[in-house]
Write a protein that binds this DNA or RNA. Structure first.
Lengths: 220, 220
DNA sequence: GTGACTTTGTGCAGGGGTTCACAAGAACGT
DNA sequence: ACGTTCTTGTGAACCCCTGCACAAAGTCAC
């Protein structure tokens, strides 16, 4: 049982990044009791081209029926499996500033199998506070969370100055997936995956495109 | 003065997306009174390869000195200009739920020239509330904000059900750059740029990579 | 002034991802 | 049973991006 029960491994990164979008669109269809969907319709709902959708799905296997389309439930199930969402993923949020508190109060996690099992902060003055009904815990609780509760994903919502330290604590405790909201470059050992989401970066990219339209210019 | 005073237009998207990172690293260097930096050092600080950094910068022009490196202040200034950050960018946040309130309280915007000039919500029961010292305004105020205050960027922090409507209101008022935090695909006319940041999507991508290491497998 | 050294800027090759075009396969009407 | 129609799955072309290798250009020591 080494390579049999596993999902396919050769899915391109760009494709993986789009699968959640497809899953979301499929879930919406299922809520409206729609049983079957064509690649064209699903692609429109997910905001991509139908060719790209089909190529992405082909990496998972052939789950469509030619001339008909895709079974909504079936395809949702396949994508769920491919993404590894059949199991629950325990999540811890580090850093109880404005953003951390907002994330702690956000209800959207549980919908998709992500369970926030702990809120932490490195500042002793914050530890013990109640946030969204939970008590804020100290960083030294991390190893136990990994061992006892299978903590797998850490969300960093600290100021950028403390992000690397928080990341190091997570990694040392055994967490191998990190979602970083601090505007900082985190260095981690091989095998640890970090995704950084930075508000300022996004706004600056928008500013670049904004000035392009603000100063229109013809080619010749 | 049509094509002269404008910055270069042929910067690849992938390159533009990295410029904010370079700018952040340069700002940190300037804070430490470092006047000059090599591509190798700056690349490390920004988490990219030195070759890629130099290629990215070459799209802006030749602002380095061979054998020496880059002048920190000068390069920061050039990137600032290229991104269009010499001017202030008025921002409005739509949707005063948990995330919207956290964004409103976030202090990181002003640091980089983004000024939050209004908080809005479509729900009359929320309009008039005080959030982070500002009064929440109704959506119908949008056109005036664009005309009177040059509102250019809209941040959508509504539930996904209301995201498209909020987006339509923004676009109709004249906003052409949108940062969307709702898990939804927004359709907009040509000339409007939307960037979507979705927590669930990010977590699901991490889950995919997490299961890869959870079920290790050798090639042969 | 000259040679050794350092670092930038870039032509070129390689790879990954997207799009195109079309073959393969399934349902349906007659 | 057969042709028409529809839709998926995929080989191939194309394009953008990244990494390599190296020439160009500057500094420094003497």
């Amino acid at each position: 049982m080494s390579a049999a029960a596993t999902t396919r491994r050769d899915i391109p990164d760009a494709s993986v990044a789009r699968l959640p979008g497809y899953l979301r669109a499929l879930t919406a269809l299922a809520r409206n009791d729609i049983a079957s969907v064509s690649s064209e319709e699903l692609a429109t709902a997910a905001g991509v081209s139908s060719t790209m959708l089909r190529k992405d799905l082909s990496h998972l296997g052939s789950y469509g029926v030619r001339g008909v389309g895709y079974d909504v439930e079936r395809l949702a199930s396949e994508i769920t499996t491919a993404l590894g969402l059949t199991q629950d993923w325990p999540v811890a949020i580090v850093g109880m500033g404005n953003l951390g508190r907002a994330l702690a109060a956000y209800r959207g996690f549980a919908e998709r199998g992500f369970r926030v099992i702990a809120l932490l902060d490195g500042d002793p003055r914050v530890v013990g506070d109640r946030v969204a009904g939970d008590v804020v815990r100290p960083m030294r609780d991390l190893p136990d969370l990994v061992v006892d509760h299978g903590l797998a994903i850490g969300v960093i919502a600290t100021p950028s100055a403390g992000a690397q330290e928080a990341c190091d604590d997570l990694v040392e405790a055994g967490v191998r997936s990190v979602l970083n909201f601090a505007p900082a470059v985190l260095s981690v050992p091989d095998g640890v995956v970090v995704r950084t989401v930075d508000l300022s970066t996004e706004l600056q990219i928008l500013a670049f495109h904004g000035q392009r339209v603000a100063a229109p210019e013809v080619v010749a």
